[in-house]
Design a binder for these strands. Structure first.
Length: 455
RNA sequence: GUGGGCGUAGCUCAGCUGGUAGAGCAUCGCGUUGUGGUCGCGAGGGCCGCGGGUUCAAGUCCCGUCGCUCACCCCA
């Protein structure tokens, strides 16, 4: 077989990169569980019509087909790989509503697939880590405050391995919609989509687009940009927005509701996670099912990477017509996060394999002695491997060194001139001492690979 | 899906107006007959992405194709 080439958009890490990724996954899971979220996993595929409820994303969905299959692709029976975890979760909630306890707090960490063109930090197969809280019929607003704060904590827990600080930008759909309608713009979706480009193409181009694409007048466009320019981490932004709305005669009931919610979120966040949550009135979010708070998260210093954690409140995503289950949740782009941690060399694993000890093999005849040492160490939860061949000790040490294994264990012997004790060598310092496999302990920091800031 | 850039050793790349494929790093061996990293010497490794064309002669020029990559779209 010719050498395979990498498939663009389907990231695969080397073993030390995977150690970093697993550490991130463990940390997220731990934080989610610390906050009482229960884990679930849903199947990788959903009926196509379910997946398409989200909007015009059909071209991004990977369809499933069998090689042997005839061309009998009945549209309403086609299966597609899920492209996020929110839609499958909504389906899961409806399917199991009778067996679930509400409000339901769940986390879900799985791969998702999108048929996009890959780029730095954008993949076709990637891992998302979601938390959502779903109520039966109603979902109190305070959950819209809690959800981003849990994520702030989860991402904050990763700062010790070298993740830059995060900034969670929040807005509220009711504020945006209330304002736009208040000034006479009804194409709320369209306006949001253009406003979303503000950072990328600048206010002048956005203004143009608002006029040409959304039928706005120059004044309306100017008002939209004025709203989008408002941001801040204290409740002063609420007054600012209201003042702007009043000056345009755009105060609506919807706007007031949204402002009250946004204000409550900012107030709570400034107390529980100071400096992390920032109101930013230009945050739009493309997805059309969000109805209240919307969130987007950037890594400070890596804003160009885009959002690493986004979400919002949705009122009708899970609805069977009779019952609705409003929810709020956020999703961390784990692969985006990990790929940046690795490519920007922000973190490193202390070694590329779990082994803390390599047990040297004196000769193939005496391999059993080395296996016995390994067994004794493993019995006390010390990760160990035995050297692959009875090569010169120099080579066996090199084997350990290349993998970052800190200790090499030399089995002793019993000869005519008496017993020679086992010895263990710290190959970083060169220190070598007598040791007993029944009692020897590595330093706690060497027991398992760790992930640490680099440089 | 649209447009630009790039495909040469495991990796990073050089290869001029066409003339017998190179370097550094990595790997392996030896120096080093039980203890690595440094150093020295040596070795292996290439359908120059693939297909076609021009030419006495193509890694080099032309066309196509595939892949990777960047931007748009969209989004974690």
């Amino acid at each position: 077989m010719a050498k395979p080439t990498p498939l663009s958009g389907f990231p695969e890490w080397l073993p030390d990169g995977r150690i970093v990724e697993q550490h991130v996954l463990d940390t997220l899971r731990h934080t989610f569980e610390l906050h009482g979220f229960a884990g679930i996993e849903t199947r990788a595929v959903e009926p196509l019509d379910q997946l398409l409820r989200k909007g015009e994303t059909s071209k991004e969905v990977y369809l499933l087909s069998r090689l042997q299959e005839e061309n009998s692709q009945i549209p309403d029976k086609q299966l597609g790989l899920h492209f996020d975890l929110t839609v499958p979760f909504a389906r899961y909630v409806l399917e199991n509503a009778g067996k679930l306890a509400f409000p339901l707090r769940r986390y879900q960490i799985q791969k998702v697939w999108r048929g996009e063109r890959p780029q730095e930090g954008r993949f076709r197969e990637f891992i998302q880590a979601d938390i959502d809280i779903v109520g039966a019929g109603e979902l109190p607003y305070h959950f819209e405050v809690e959800a981003p704060l849990v994520m702030a904590e989860a991402l904050g827990a990763l700062s010790e391995i070298g993740l830059p600080p995060v900034r969670i930008l929040v807005n509220n759909r009711r504020v945006a919609e209330g304002f736009y309608r208040g000034i006479g713009l009804d194409d709320v979706e369209g306006v949001l989509r253009q406003i979303d480009k503000l950072d990328k193409i600048g206010p002048d181009r956005v203004s143009e687009l608002l006029v040409t694409e959304c039928g706005a007048t120059e004044d309306q466009a100017k008002a939209c940009l004025a709203l989008a320019s408002i941001s801040g981490s204290d409740v002063g932004v609420i007054a600012e927005v209201r003042a702007l709305a009043e000056s345009h005669g755009a105060v609506t009931e919807l706007l007031e509701t949204g402002l009250a919610e946004l204000g409550a979120l900012i107030a709570a966040a400034s107390e529980r996670a100071p400096g992390v949550v920032v109101a930013d009135l230009k945050i739009a979010r493309g997805l059309d099912y969000y109805t209240g708070s919307v969130y987007e998260t950037v890594l400070v210093g890596h804003e160009q990477l885009g959002s690493v954690c986004s979400g919002g409140r949705y009122d009708t995503l899970a609805s069977d017509g009779k019952n609705t289950y409003p929810g709020v949740g956020l999703s961390i782009g784990v692969s985006r996060l990990v790929s940046r941690l690795l490519s920007a060399e922000l973190v490193e694993a202390t070694r590329s394999v779990p082994s803390a000890v390599l047990v040297a093999v004196t000769s193939e005849e005496e391999r059993a002695a080395s296996d016995a040492v390994a067994t004794a160490l493993r019995a006390r939860d010390i990760p160990v491997e035995v050297a692959p061949s009875a090569a010169r000790f120099g080579k066996q040490i090199k084997y350990a060194d290349r993998r970052g294994i800190p200790f090499v264990w030399f089995p002793g012997s019993v000869g005519d001139d008496g017993a020679v004790a086992d010895q263990v060598k710290d190959i970083r310092s060169g220190d070598q001492v007598d040791a007993d496999a029944a009692t020897w302990e590595p330093p706690a920091e060497d027991r398992w690979p760790r992930v640490i800031p680099k440089g």
